[in-house]
Amino acid sequence: MYQIIKQILHTGIKSEKPPQPDDALRSQVQEINAQILKYVGRALAIRHVDAGSCNGCELEIHCLNNPYYNIEGMGIHFVASPRHADMLLVTGPVSRHMEVALKRTFDATPDPKLVVAVGDCGRDGGIFGTSYASCGGVTSVIPVDAVVPGCPPTPVAILQGILTAVSRRV
């Protein structure tokens, strides 16, 4: 125990300031009540759904939980079920084999809900495109509120996408 406490004190606080929302990432007019957004913006539950990614975007989403980005410190946490979620964070081109599962996950998420598509593939299918096996971007299967491009997008960019989706459109 002494070693653990010593190491924690030695490490210090690594958390950095969060980025600001970016209107450029918005993909559609948000219809959600501003009051609700104000609320969920401070206590947001996110369900991550991999819809067919290469796993690169997942690596960066993991990083959001590290002490530098400290996403939980902002009141945002990842939950184990869409039933508990305010937001779906979706990666990958949507493979045709994941189309049904993604729709069901969306349907299982209570309203009001937000969707953020992560990565170049989440935006439009990216390098994998559209084919017999890929539906392309997330928006071809479920409605999307914000898109975060990048291959993979950095944790700061993903955080910015999340904050953009929950912030009220001016």
Partner: peptide, 22 residues
């Protein structure tokens, strides 16, 4: 098989340079 996105088919017909990114 859920993540099958047709990578090997996608490679077909690509140039040797193009394939590197995929």
């Amino acid at each position: 098989g859920y993540k099958h996105k047709g990578i090997e088919k996608r490679f077909e017909g690509m140039s040797l340079e193009q394939g590197a990114k995929l």
